[in-house]
Design a protein around this nucleic acid. Structure first.
Lengths: 257, 257
DNA sequence: CGAACAATTGAATCAGGTCAATAGTAGTGG
DNA sequence: CCACTACTATTGACCTGATTCAATTGTTCG
């Protein structure tokens, strides 16, 4: 996520001047470059499926840019997008449950590193930076999954949608004078499957939010959040997400509130 | 989980003879004993809360016996039990999302090892067994969380309850002639909070299952599953759970079905 | 025994799902 | 550049599964 935010440094500076010092989350441990030299670089297109690989052959995927969805379908059940995987995140074959249809699908075009997990383990043993990255990436993944579980189990549909928008704003948003702008690189169906809603309900709530001027569209999949604070107020997970992912540039929000 | 099952070896053998060879899941990597010598041993009582520790001071907990619940309450939201943590599992401070009320609560009496995570990291760098245990424990945790997400997002209330019963049967069940027996070491409220239901609904479904003779009670919290196959048929996650946790002793069920 | 709490169960309500009709949006080929 | 197709999104009307509320029963423990 740091990537897309850095691009906007100048705009950020402007916003920061307007609103006060940005509260940045703890800088995430960067993906060690050493791993890149041993990985296969994949370029993903929107909608492309990446096989997680057979259970025996443990593979690791590190997202460098773009967004992946971890798609799970239990037998005789509807699809659930179990996780959104953003730049810096790592996932492994065994993160997917066995006996379920599980695939990685690219929501947005981007770059993914693929390597055998045993190789990652070997590097981690000798390089503390890699060990730290590995453990931190995994902890962040579980923390997100935990929030996701709390969302699916306890939030109503409006709160879920607000949470999703906050997540995208934090992870891929750029802060422009009109507000926080980001792509929603997934169909309504995909998003609904992530939120545990059905597409009709999602569409209704998006319309309701648009009616309440929480955001507006700027093109097919482009969203402009005019009042991020109001949006965050609708999501019980907003403060947790801000603490995990860093607050969006140019907004001085106390994540611990 | 291996612990409680092993106790029943003789009974298992009998059942195995009756039903055919038990399909055991892949033997989980054992908790390296070396970790124990550097850990603080905690004995938990039912209902006891263990603080996860402050964010800066990363702590690891390894469950040796009993069951823990990872309890999460997002601000202005209802409680969600984000995970059940069984013997062999490991969890860390940073698995809980920041800015949320998160605690570990013992559902059943048992033993827990506590140690600084930095120590675990150090051991892992020098001992490949510890590294392997660490990575495997974490992968299993995420796989379970993924199933949990699919359950919360896509299963109806009956399927959720069936899934919970299957999980407990696999993890803490003993196979007796009458069926698979296990303790349900949590109140209706706790279980409902894990399943994303409310206690009334849970109670209704338990009654319905009891009426359908899927299980019966043997004391306050003791459950006897008379027909495990019929129960498993009601849970889309059953095969995944069996593959992850191992099938219950004495039942020859193809987890890949 | 009786108080405090946990679980069950019925009746009424409602959030979200389902179904169906409509409108918008690429993409394609003449 | 404009039809034409195939798809995705939106929206309304209706329905259902789960929640809420309340009354009752069962259990634990001083």
């Amino acid at each position: 996520m740091a990537l897309s935010l850095k691009i906007e440094d100048t705009v950020q500076a402007g916003r920061r001047a307007m609103y006060g010092v940005a509260k940045q989350g703890p800088a995430p441990v960067e993906v060690p470059a050493a791993l890149g030299s041993h990985a296969t670089v994949l370029r993903t297109r929107r909608g492309q499926a990446l096989a997680l690989g057979p259970q025996g052959d443990e593979t690791a995927f590190i997202v460098r840019s773009g967004v992946l969805m971890l798609d799970v379908t239990l037998p005789d059940s509807a699809r659930q997008v179990a996780a959104l995987i953003f730049p810096g995140d790592l996932i492994r074959t065994s993160f997917a449950p066995p006996c379920a249809k599980a695939t990685l699908v690219a929501a947005a075009a981007g770059e993914v590193w693929r390597m055998r997990f045993s190789a990652v383990e070997t590097f981690a043993a000798s390089d503390p930076d890699i060990m730290r990255y590995l453990n931190e990436a995994v902890a962040r993944r579980i923390a997100h999954q935990t929030i996701h579980a709390a969302m699916l189990g306890r939030l109503d549909s409006e709160q879920r949608v607000a949470t999703l928008l906050v997540e995208f704003a934090l992870r891929t948003g750029r802060c422009l004078p009109q507000g926080v702008v980001f792509d929603l690189p997934a169909s309504r169906k995909d998003i609904a499957d992530f939120l545990g809603l059905n597409p009709d309900t999602l569409s209704r709530i998006m319309s309701r939010f648009r009616g309440a001027s929480l955001f507006s569209h700027a093109g097919r999949n482009k969203i402009v959040v005019r009042d991020f604070v109001a949006l965050a107020a609708r999501s019980p997970a907003a403060s947790s997400l801000m603490a995990l992912d860093g607050a969006p540039p140019g907004l001085s929000i106390d994540a611990s509130a």
